[in-house]
């Protein structure tokens, strides 16, 4: 057998095996190499029919893949399987509880009850997976009470009392520094010392592309361009006080209440700029609710919740 034939045969049999194992991308890559190999030879008899046969194989792979993806949505479950899943999720419940506590804290903060919100968030500081989110919210509570100094002091207390892994503390430092800078507050927050073991071990170093469906970047402020109402055409910048996923809460002073006139529940805001420490991007959002804060230091001010719909 000629070299060419042997190579082609090897590529095709590899492709077939990968296909048989459900390794669609790998199979496709091999078919494509086979096609490239055929194209590189000019004087093969049945060149065109070979190429079209390979193309058919590739199309078939793609069809199978989209069929499999669609099938995923509605598996039939036996009662046994259902019970198993229930048990798994039941077991996961105490974890759900913590997430619920975080949400509860954010709700309190949105209602202007900063001190009780801080109490809630402080309970979550012990939980490794929620520590950073809780800490960010605590800082936001201090900032919302207009005490930048208290936020800085709080960071320094965390820094000195050792409860935070250095890596998490560094995330929080960067977060706070960014906000302070935006507010024009001069401050140099001391950085934690990162230990070598905070870096991943050498041969486990590959970064996994995260399934970041639920991860949102921190948004520090937004600029809304009014499309209608009394402020039509005007662009106003608001600070973001609390964030939970794609839900942003802005506390708007009663002195600026007239700005809220053009913003009603359910309204779509098509032109918004989002400012984050990493980038500025444009997008749209929906006004979820507008509530007046009934008590506490921000009494009379408004809390505007908007949900980012696209960026």
């Amino acid at each position: 057998m000629s070299d060419f034939k042997q190579q082609l045969k090897a590529l095709l049999s590899e492709a077939e095996i990968y296909k048989g194992q459900g390794l669609v991308d790998e199979a496709k890559a091999k078919y494509q190499s086979a096609a490239t190999l055929i194209r590189s030879k000019e004087n093969i008899k049945n060149r065109d029919s070979l190429l079209s046969a390979i193309e058919t194989k590739i199309n078939q792979l793609q069809k199978e893949r989209s069929a499999a993806n669609q099938a995923v949505q509605s598996p039939r479950l036996s009662s046994k399987a259902q019970n198993l899943i229930k048990n798994l999720f039941l077991a996961a419940d105490d974890e759900g509880k913590d997430d619920a506590a975080l949400e509860a804290g954010i709700v309190l903060a949105k209602l202007g009850q900063f001190d009780s919100a801080i109490t809630e968030f402080n309970k979550l500081i012990q939980k490794d997976n929620l520590r950073v989110a809780a800490a960010k919210n605590i800082l936001q509570c201090h900032l919302a009470k207009s005490s930048e100094q208290e936020a800085i002091d709080q960071y320094q207390r965390w820094m000195s009392d050792d409860g935070f892994p250095p890596k998490q503390l560094e995330t929080i430092r960067q977060y706070l520094e960014e906000i302070l800078q935006q507010k024009g507050v001069e401050s140099r927050l001391p950085a934690p010392k990162l230990e070598p073991q905070d870096r991943p071990a050498a041969d486990l170093e590959l970064e996994l592309e995260k399934d970041d469906e639920e991860e949102f970047i921190d948004i520090t402020s937004i600029a809304i361009t009014f499309e209608s109402g009394p402020h039509k055409g005007k662009t106003v910048e608001f600070e973001v006080n609390f964030q939970s996923g794609n839900m942003l809460s802005l506390i708007i002073s009663k002195d600026e209440a007239d700005l809220l006139e053009g913003l009603d529940d359910g309204m779509t805001l098509k032109e918004i700029q989002f400012f984050s420490p990493i980038a500025i991007f444009n997008g749209s959002a929906v006004v979820v609710s507008k509530t007046q804060i009934k008590s506490g230091p921000k009494q009379g001010d408004y809390c505007l919740d908007i949900r980012i719909t696209s960026t």
């Binding site: 459900g22 199978e64 069929a67 499999a68 099938a71 995923v72 598996p75 479950l77 036996s78 046994k80 399987a81 198993l84 899943i85």
Partner: peptide, 11 residues
């Protein structure tokens, strides 16, 4: 007990 999709992938 296997919880599968129609294609035999483990869901």
């Amino acid at each position: 007990v296997s919880i599968n999709t129609e294609g035999d992938r483990t869901l």
